[in-house]
Design a protein around this nucleic acid. Sequence first.
DNA 1: TAGCTCTCTAACTCTCAGGC
DNA 2: GCCTGAGAGTTAGAGAGCTA
Length: 303
Amino acid sequence: MDLLQLKYFQTVAKLEHMTKAAHALQIAQPALSVTIARLEEDVGVPLFNRTGRNIVLNEYGKAFLERVTRALNELEAGRQEVSDLSGSEFGYVSIASTFMSKRFCNRLASFAQLYPKVNFQLTQTTNENAKLRLLESGEVDFIFTIKKIERPDIVCVPLVEKDIFLAVSPVHRLANRGTVALEELAGEPFINLKADESIQEFCHAMCLKRGFAPKVVCTCDSSQGLVNLVSAGFGVTFFPSPGRQKPNSPFVLLKVEDFDYKSFLYLAWKEKRYFSKAALYFREYVIHQSKVKKKRNRFSTVR
DNA sequence: TAGCTCTCTAACTCTCAGGC
DNA sequence: GCCTGAGAGTTAGAGAGCTA
């Protein structure tokens, strides 16, 4: 059993498809089949169930994959640690996030300018559980999440606090109002963002309290799609925003009366994990920037 | 049923380490 | 430096499953 076999196995297990895995590994498919067969012979049991032309990870395979992932991550951490000690490289930061907003990307870019030797590995997923799995398996250093994770092995730090506003098109009947009562939204077409489940659950419950269920006409995958639909007047949405209306905003934000929900963005990481210098600097940078931002927001509110 | 796709096997090549 | 064996890779082709 060698590292190459384990890396090949991990890829096949992930994709459950020999040809796609071979393509991903940039080798010919037969070479991969033979390697997996040799690994299975070595382990002593089949790791995949082969039915027809399909291969699916079986119970042995699942158990083995867990160990292999842990072992490979541990080796990678070791490599990183030795590399840090020798000062031969700065390392990389791996992040999973739902949103790749302009502000988020600018923040990454400014960090990259500050530390040009740092490499980034970004994973975008709208699924909060998928992000948590990536964090648990050690595939990423950090996740940005809107769900607070309350677990002893995971540290979860709030970065951004946002109020919930109602976003409407500039030509909407309510657009010139500074505030709006929830009751006035009965019958309005709502657009939801897939990733914002917790906000939607709260808003849905609030609407029910006021005697109506929000009429959801569309659920968007991307926040840009949501912005485009709302600004085009296709519907309205509950929108988390850290502060005031931006001058060039494509939609109008209205304060909702008696609506005291705060949305947070958290940075989360596994407590007992080796972090490269790059990852540590990144964590420090993000937390520091969020504190600076909070101070600025307080100052602008006072003004 | 034909055509396509996928996995696997067989035969071969290439590279590299070890022995002389 | 040459030979040899092991291992990892390639291509070609067989066989089975899926789909229009």
